[in-house]
């Protein structure tokens, strides 16, 4: 990692830390959800972006994580922070087990299998034999934790910081994972699984493990999301959640770590903007945004930023006549964000 990048990251984290003191509590809650979605999207990106397996059902893992946290807190009196590793572990196992048979499937066939998982999840959560755990259609209400150690933070701010720390840890872990041997194996499988196999990568183990780790990320996000929203119910985890996740990683940028954050910002705030633009047909506006982003940035926001930086870098080296173009392209970047 270059020095510039490091400085940029530190500044970013500082801004993220200052944020909750500058905006209203509701905004803080919204930014907490951005962090939560960023973790979920990173999980999906590990699977889809890096490993090339399409999932249209990651909402199901988000739901499992959320319900694990809610049930542990509500029925067993677990503290909120202790539910995260358990939610992650449960999703790791479920994801790994789902990944084993799904391995045989590729492309759209895998998409369908995961789609089925996503669609069935609300039905399973409503299933009457599970009702005493899941609360059936009613769902489960949980309470928002207060800041510990007498910290001068309100619950929204505290949860924001808690989520931020979890997110940074998870991102660091993913970054470490991806830049080494494992990351290379994942990408090799995505780009040419036969060749990867021939080079000695055990594709089946890697693919199901990736499924598991991806589910773990999304599950932890689900648990955090449940704590932030203080409520879980089957219909908040319908298939549309899974689809929105997929939209998030594509628009943020496939196979990129920062892309998860851009995507999370998109899926959290664009529906709000759409709602303000048109009360009559907000989803139509959301749809137009989706298509518009893909037109403008076929390789996602991250891809577009990279392209701009590359151009900027080249112009900066040659200097002179290129500088005006650079300015105008920076303006387009601002406009598109």
């Amino acid at each position: 990692m270059s020095r510039n990048k490091l400085i940029f990251l530190v500044v970013l984290v500082l801004v993220a830390c200052a944020l909750p003191f500058l905006v209203s509590n509701y905004r803080v809650f919204q930014f907490t959800l951005v962090l939560v979605y960023a973790i979920a999207l990173l999980g999906l990106n590990l699977l889809t972006g890096y490993n090339g397996q399409i999932s249209l059902g990651h909402g199901a893992f988000y739901a499992i994580g959320a319900y694990t946290a809610a049930i542990l807190m509500d029925k067993f009196g677990f503290p909120y922070w202790a539910t995260l590793p358990i939610a992650g572990a449960v999703c790791l196992v479920v994801g790994f087990l789902f990944g084993l048979p799904a391995l045989r499937l590729e492309g759209i066939y895998l998409a369908l299998a995961t789609f089925a998982l996503g669609v069935s999840m609300p039905q399973l959560l409503k299933y009457h034999h599970l009702e005493k755990w899941t609360g059936g259609v009613q769902g489960i209400v949980i309470t928002k934790p207060d800041a510990p150690f007498g910290l001068p933070l309100n619950p929204d701010q505290w949860l924001y910081f808690f989520t931020l720390v979890v997110m940074l840890l998870m991102f660091l872990f993913a970054w470490n994972l991806l830049r080494g041997r494992i990351g290379r194996a994942l990408i090799a499988i995505r780009d040419h699984h036969v060749a990867a196999e021939a080079m000695g990568v055990n594709t089946s183990i890697y693919k199901s493990l990736t499924f598991g780790v991806s589910a773990l990320y999304t599950g932890i996000a689900g648990a955090l999301g449940a704590i932030a929203v203080q409520f879980v119910a089957p219909d908040s985890f319908n298939i549309f959640l899974s689809i929105v996740f997929l939209v998030g990683i594509v628009i943020g940028g496939l196979a990129s770590i920062p892309g998860a954050i851009y995507g999370a910002i998109f899926i959290q705030f664009i529906p709000n903007i759409a709602d303000e633009l048109s009360k009559a047909a907000p989803w139509a506006i959301f749809g137009i945004f989706m298509i518009g982003f893909v037109y403008a940035m076929p390789f996602g926001i991250n891809g577009a930023i990279r392209m701009l930086l590359a151009r900027f870098g080249r112009k900066a080296q040659t200097g002179g006549p290129g500088s005006t173009i650079t300015e105008s392209s920076l303006k387009t970047k601002e406009a598109s964000q």
């Binding site: 997929l246 749809g287 298509i291 076929p298």
Partner: peptide, 9 residues
């Protein structure tokens, strides 16, 4: 996948 997003849109 970008095309898929256009479909969803």
């Amino acid at each position: 996948l970008s095309v898929v997003v256009v479909f969803i849109g």
